[in-house]
Amino acid sequence: MTRRTLASCVVLLLGAIAARDAAAQPAPAGPGRLELSGGALWIGRTAIGAADANETTSSNGSFRLFTTSSDLAAAPSVDARIGVRLARSLAVEVETAYGRPELRVAISGDTENAVAVTAVEKIQQYMIGGGVLWYLPALGGPRFAPFVFGGGGYLRQLHDQALLVQTGRYFQVGGGVTYLLSSRQGKWLKATGVRVDARAVVRRDGVAFASGAHTAPAVGGSFFVRF
């Protein structure tokens, strides 16, 4: 038996075990393999950089004209997901979210005493990505199913009137719980429920004035159906 054939057999065997487990034992999240959900995601404030407007002195030092501190304000998003259960406790998901957070630049400390202001712009933010979700059966109950998840994807942020597009990546990790509202084994629609989660969303690039990762807390809530 060649190495390739052996590897294929191992994969098939694992797939068979996963399928058998999923069929033979009740999944911790309840029935159904395909899950569609929609809801809301609230992403908290994210600091995205601070910068001074400096001029150069004759000794190559700095003379500060004013200072700025920028963030993406907390904002709600609408959120939709499609998930597929691969094994008893394991699911993969694709997710998309759309929100309109404000880009806020606080300006202060002007050397000529200009009144401090916060310059604001509303941006459109799209997040498209995927991840892996792991149910924790030992912590759950008949209707409750706790889980942890992680993933990432593509970040697309459009400035005012789509004059400029900035793109980046996001990553997220978190945990939550699903609650089954109904469960009907053997039916086409196998379950309905709600899901809440808390997560840390890490954004790279996109609308940011400092390099590196920018982390924000987030909470989500959604309604799902399973088939």
């Binding site: 002007d110 000529e112 200009a114 009144v115 202001v117 712009e121 400029l164």
Partner: peptide, 13 residues
């Protein structure tokens, strides 16, 4: 008086 514009202005490509 010296003043700032109260919105972020976008320079497009």
């Amino acid at each position: 008086r010296v003043s700032f514009v109260d919105r972020v202005v976008i320079v497009p490509r």
